[in-house]
Write a protein that binds this DNA or RNA. Sequence first.
DNA 1: ATCTTGCCCGACAACGATTG
DNA 2: CAATCGTTGTCGGGCAAGAT
Length: 407
Amino acid sequence: MDNKLDIVEKQKLTQSLKLSQMMKLSINILKMSVMDLNNFIEKEFSKDLGISVELNYSNQENYDNEKEVEINYLTDEKNFFQILEEQLSYFKIETKIKEICIFIINNLNKKGYLELSKIEIKDILKVSDKELEEAFDIIHNLEPYGVGAYSLEECLKIQLKAKMIIDKRLFLFIDNYLYLLVDKKYNLIKEKLNINDDILFSYIDMIKSLNPIPSRGYSVGKVKKIIPDILVEIKEDEVFFEINRASIPQINIKDKVNVKYYKKINEIVSCIEKRFETLDKIMKIIIRKQKKFFTSQGKKINTLKISDIANELNLSSSTVSRAVKEKYIKTDFGIISLRKLFNLDSAVFLHQQKILEYIENENKEKPFSDQDIVNLLEKDGIKIARRTVTKYREKLGYKSSHKRKKY
DNA sequence: ATCTTGCCCGACAACGATTG
DNA sequence: CAATCGTTGTCGGGCAAGAT
């Protein structure tokens, strides 16, 4: 009895394992971003020479240009450059100097070095030497120390200055003899600088403790390119969308291919096709439910849960969750993460709608204060704190009662 | 002077999303 | 499907600052 069950169980297990291989592939492909998918396709189809598949990048230009330009400004993780910019607000500085700083930050390369000469900056921004110096002073005090340098030497010196280490001979070393250090010509260095072993090795230790690539350890967001999965167009209050099939290379199978590989390729292709289909289905519902979002240029948003869509499509919420992961919509008001369209607790949403109603219908000469709204809501059986009302009001884009007052 | 709002910030709960 | 992860809402109470 037990044995039989065992066999049945095992069969089930192997079945589900076989099934799960395909499932796994499907799930993986579904949750990939366009970039990941491209990498995957390239990797998958280039590793075996036995396969001859034509990876036809139908839109090479689109692929190259757009990905450079479209920086992901809606995802949450801050990149190296954003972190730098953020620090500017810690300094008390004039707007003009701040603008110069921002310009400099945006022109750093991904290592954190500056490639634009001071003369060029002056020329482009039309600023004085003094202003430029002020700006550099601030840039050099941003963390990680060493950003905004023109050379390795300068970068290291900035870091030393930040550590309050000012040593003329050490600076001389850095400026002139780093190449000797690389070659380990210690005696020559000692001779040139006229120092003994102890000092030499203390210098070397110090230099080794510095970071030659300031941006190391930070995500260099500019490198992360986003290619939209979906293109949305709004015409006369109607929303149209199109799946950006051109985002991935076309896969054409050329000659006769080994049957085994052929099957595998087919599996991959059908999974990719499925990914597009799923996205398409999800988008249809999103457009319907979040039409307002698009027609209002992203200002208004309805409540929408992943599970809402899952129910409607008879998919599990996991699938929908994976499908919207790292997918982006291109609209005429920017690239939006699909994930952003799912939000808001329904009770919270209801409360906000109530507040909106009250404010919309209030006597403009005597607007409701937040406390008034608390009382009104309490009569409706909704108990929330004044601070919460304040937050909702702000979220809805209403000013304080003083400022709403009209005479 | 009085009313209104903004703000602080950790702790806790609740609910969905994610993952395997 | 279940365990875990992550996000968001909510609260507190009182003070500072702004509006009237």
